[in-house]
Design a protein around this nucleic acid. Structure first.
Lengths: 196, 196
DNA sequence: GATTGCACTTGACACCACGTCAAGTCGATG
DNA sequence: CATCGACTTGACGTGGTGTCAAGTGCAATC
């Protein structure tokens, strides 16, 4: 089936990814993607029954290509709670710019599309797990503050690390990525730990 | 021209506001708004040439009706920097739930509509002014930390107080409004002040 | 009392994306 | 050769926005 050893499906995924990286998510149409993939519009629907499904597939594809799991492994390997928090923020925070264009597109269509919304919520609840683990690690070390309870601490970290906040600081305020990471680490420490 | 002393234009604005308060922003159509206003769909276009224009007009209407200026006056009246920061967070933070349904609708259409995007950016840059003023007040009192410079401190406060973060905590995590306010005050103090 | 003007109604239409359908092409494989 | 699968082509339905043209009804004005 492939032309150059690459399946049509993958060509579409890559073309879509490339398009999203340089265009406004919401304005990338199925026909654009088809053209960029060198395939007819219908062929796209042959592989992905819906725009939302395609975008979701692209996020999974990007996850796989950029080895998000490996990135997060470091944070799970950390021994102390503080190390783990820092490593988690670094892993996730540095992954955001990679997936961001695709997230943007998914997010843009979420208000009007149930499937997109569910997929996004799913991603976000995965992130929440990571936050919860980091909070637990702090608690295990006895350095989690007790003003907000564990759940609230997780809520706070999760909100802090949202894609929107990254957009706000890095894209909206032109912060360099490194500054974003450092500031988030500081903020998270101040928000969650009893001793800074 | 009015039926009950209320202009058609205002009936539309109020009906739209009411609809947004109980529906999903993006799914509220022009025809829904027309029906709720007891007016034809075309009549709506007679007053607002575009859906974006209508939504923008509603936000301004809500601003006026809820006296956002009076709310913010308190923060400007504060004498100390810390008082001012707290008052600002309280004024804006407690205003969010009021405008939120309308913001939601505007935000939902922003990705695909230039006018909506501009209107939103405009609102956000007004908020930024407020943040900057609060930061300046802290600096005047000599209690602004110097790790992040003034601009970055403003960026941080502005991002912290974003509508998205309110949504995340209050709607996403079911925080009561009061808790949101208190936590934001704490977070802002920790993030901006040299002495907590 | 007729005329003009204004706010509004009615119904049709163009537009744009998404998604669907049916028929056809082309190459590989039995 | 026949058939199957991946793909193309072109037409179509749908839902929402925004436009257009003709009409209605009331009020102020002549």
């Amino acid at each position: 089936m492939p032309d150059d050893g690459v399946s049509t499906r993958e060509r579409i995924l890559r073309a879509c990814w490339a398009l999203l990286e340089q265009g406004q998510g919401a304005k990338t149409r199925m026909s654009d993607i088809a053209r960029a993939s060198g395939v007819s519009r219908q062929a796209v629907y042959l592989h992905f029954s819906t725009r939302a499904e395609l975008l979701i597939a692209v996020t999974r594809f990007v996850d796989a290509e950029s080895d998000i799991d490996a990135r997060l492994a470091a944070s799970r390997a950390a021994t102390s709670g503080l190390e783990r928090l820092d490593a988690f923020i670094e892993a996730w925070g540095n992954y955001i710019p990679v997936v961001h264009p695709v997230c943007r597109a998914l997010l843009d269509m979420a208000p009007g599309d149930e499937a997109a919304k569910l997929a996004w919520d799913d991603r976000m609840s995965a992130l929440r797990e990571g936050c919860m683990a980091a909070v637990s690690a702090l608690k295990a070390d006895g350095i989690l503050r007790d003003d907000p309870d564990d759940a609230a601490a997780t809520d706070l970290l999760w909100t802090l690390l949202s894609v929107r906040n990254w957009e706000s600081l890095v894209e909206g305020c032109n912060w360099p990525q490194a500054r974003y990471i450092e500031e988030m680490k500081r903020l998270a420490r101040q928000a969650l730990m009893s001793t800074g």
